[in-house]
């Protein structure tokens, strides 16, 4: 187990280092550079002054050298300053990370809570009316543009009924109290949840149908177990194994969904932060928040791998491990 965890951690570290170099390189290709931005904000800046600043900040150095310099700082916890917020990058990212964790965590749990039972229901009687309806819903879920779904929800609940806010946070609106705070979360969570139910339910159905074909299910039926017992005791755990891997690969996708949702609802999470940083030429912030997003997805994948081995003891790292 420990060996497995360490090798996975090592791999993730490698991915992060490669990604940081790639993203650093991409940031260098963004329009303008920090000095250009200083020139536009300071009309007295001369060409010589700009050149001197470029040397001072090391912008005339080759990209690898600049990257190593950045990495040196990053390792010691110095991620630089955010230009948009005029604060250390880390201070900006920390609260956004928490907000995104709330958004992604709740919609992930709710989506699974709805999708898995739906997939199982559809699998119990394949090609029935119920399966057919669930299938329609699933296809709608995977085909709906997430931003349009969000716009529809806003139109319905904010414009027509006027019962939920169209975006923002309770803090920004000066509201307090649990319900007032929760109100701002309902629509973002709902739109993110609805967009991911389809995919999950589809995997669950396919995997459950596959599992129910096995001999041990026939044996369980033959010894007189009820349908519910067969499903929950014998089939579910086996059927969940492939589902966890696919869902794990969806973490990146989920994060992409969060970017769209947060941007539309002006929700101050990582997705909106990344979008604003890229749009506002805030290179430091964009770089670090993108890396954090990558880290988050890798962490998700890692946890799914652990869940995978827990579900399927045959894979057990037990052999020869501590």
């Amino acid at each position: 187990m420990i060996q497995f965890v360490f090798s996975r951690l090592f791999q993730s570290m490698a991915v992060i280092v490669i990604m940081s170099y790639a993203i650093y390189g991409l940031m260098g290709l963004m329009p303008g550079d920090p000095i250009d931005l200083m020139i536009t904000s300071d009309p007295n800046m001369t060409t010589e002054g700009a050149a001197r600043l470029r040397t001072l900040y090391g912008l005339d150095r080759p990209i690898t050298e600049r990257y190593l310099h950045w990495l040196e700082g990053a390792v010691t916890g110095d991620f630089g300053y955010s230009r948009l917020f005029s604060r250390p990058v880390f201070e900006v990212i920390w609260p956004a990370l928490g907000n995104t964790a709330i958004l992604l965590g709740s919609s992930f749990v709710i989506a699974l809570g709805i999708a898995l039972p739906l997939g199982i229901l559809a699998a119990i009687k394949p090609y029935s009316k119920l399966d057919y309806s669930i299938n329609l819903f699933v296809f709608a879920g995977i085909s709906v543009p997430p931003f349009w779904l969000a716009l529809l929800l806003i139109t319905l609940f904010s414009v027509i009924f006027g019962i939920l806010p169209a975006g923002g946070t309770a803090d920004a609106a000066g509201a307090s109290g649990l319900w007032e705070r929760a109100k701002y979360l309902v629509l973002p969570i709902a739109s993110l949840t609805l967009a991911s139910i389809g995919g999950h339910a589809r995997y669950m159905r396919a995997s459950m149908i596959e599992t129910l074909r096995h001999e041990f299910i026939r044996t369980a039926r033959a010894k007189g177990l009820s349908q519910t017992q067969v499903i929950t005791r014998h089939a579910l755990r086996n059927a969940l194994i492939p589902v966890t891997t696919v869902i794990a690969l969806d973490f990146g996708y989920l994060f992409s969904g969060a970017l769209v949702t947060e941007t539309i609802f002006a929700y101050p999470g990582m997705g909106k932060l990344i979008f604003d940083a890229i749009m506002g030429n805030d290179y430091n912030l964009a770089l670090v928040s993108l890396l954090f997003a990558t880290l988050l997805t890798l962490l998700g994948n890692f946890m799914a791998d652990v869940a995978y081995t827990w579900l399927d003891p045959r894979l057990g790292f037990a052999k020869g491990d501590a």
């Binding site: 290709l29 963004m30 973490f251 990146g252 994060f255 970017l259 769209v260 964009a286 990558t294």
Partner: peptide, 24 residues
């Protein structure tokens, strides 16, 4: 391929869409 699939693609695509091609 697996690495690409597991990345948060949309933010990275946004960066790709925003880069200045003249620098390339």
């Amino acid at each position: 391929t697996d690495g690409i699939i597991s990345l948060p693609l949309l933010p990275l695509l946004i960066v790709l869409a925003a880069i200045d091609l003249s620098k390339l």
